[in-house]
Computed example of a mutant assay.
Amino acid sequence: MSTDAQQDSEEFHDWQRWHEGRIVAVAAPHGPLSLTGTHWLADHPEGRIPAVPGLWREDGDEVVLVATPEDGLTVDAEPLDGEVRLGADRGPVDASRVAQGDRRLVVLSREGLWAVRDFDPQSPTRQAFRTVDATPYDPKWSLDGTFRPYDSDRTVRVENADGRERGLGLSGEIAFTVDGAEHTLQVAVEPDGSLWAVFADTTSGKSSYRFRFLRPPAPDGDGRVRVDFNRTLLPPCAFADHFICPFPPPGNTLTVAVPAGERNRIDG
């Protein structure tokens, strides 16, 4: 198919809408570019987090926040004067329980450790952002794949972007063919049945970010799944240094180049 024909195809226009939507989501006031810090409470036993108002401490399976009116914090859109007990925020960032004006203070839990994430729409990274560099849609990289579930879920320890090692759950692998050779990626299964892979390839750290995400849809009843590398995603840590994205597990570094999908963040 010629380049002109590719760019007139329905698939290309679907991809273009997806790409434009991604740019809007990334640049949103509380998108990943606005994250200015992930503060682990274990690193602040006195309860004071630099540049974050209030007094924060762990208490078993909750976080206790104490604030005065001078802190300017709200919880559930009501001014906080005193103490409140918080669980982890599970929803969108802009729906977090704790805020200070436009800032959102998101409570996070990972492997029994608690943190507070600070999302500020005025972050320098968000102000500098221009776009996401992505390769235009190429039908060559929309592949037929097969999902092969494991007999039981597995957890492997992998390094994360913040230098700490954490567990990564894996439920199976997807197999697909590139230039006549079969390749596989280990994947997690999301609650809605869709798949998630963290992978690298021979472009990683060169013409694309050091690793990327792939989110295929749920397989059909026979395990068939569309492996569309045109929709390869940059991980959140490509947009802000304070995310804790997992690195690819062993076996998820492809021996081929994948010149498709999102490649890098571009600042103005």
Rank of each mutant, 00 (worst) to 15 (best):
D81N: 13
S96I: 02
G112V: 00
G91C: 04
L105F: 09
F129I: 07
T74L: 03
G91D: 10
D94W: 15
L108E: 15
P79K: 14
R110C: 13
V106G: 07
L73H: 01
A95H: 15
L105M: 06
V106D: 09
D118V: 09
R104W: 11
Y137H: 12
V98G: 05
A134W: 08
V132D: 08
D133V: 13
L80K: 05
A88I: 10
R104V: 11
L108T: 14
R85M: 05
Q127M: 08
D133P: 13
R97D: 01
D102W: 11
R85G: 02
G87H: 05
S123L: 07
L73M: 02
Q100E: 12
P124R: 06
V116N: 01
V107S: 12
R85L: 06
P136C: 01
D138I: 04
P121G: 04
D76L: 07
D94C: 07
T74F: 01
D133L: 14
V106W: 03
R110A: 15
P139Y: 00
V98I: 11
A115M: 04
G91H: 07
S96R: 01
P121Y: 04
G101M: 12
R104L: 12
P121S: 03
R126K: 05
R126T: 02
D94N: 13
T131M: 09
A77K: 04
T125E: 12
D76R: 05
G91F: 03
L73E: 02
V75Y: 02
A99P: 03
T135K: 06
T135G: 01
Q100W: 03
A99Q: 14
D81F: 05
T131F: 06
V98Q: 12
A95K: 15
D120Y: 11
D81I: 06
Q100R: 14
F129N: 05
P139I: 01
V93D: 07
G112W: 00
D89Y: 00
T135P: 03
D120R: 09
A134N: 09
V75F: 01
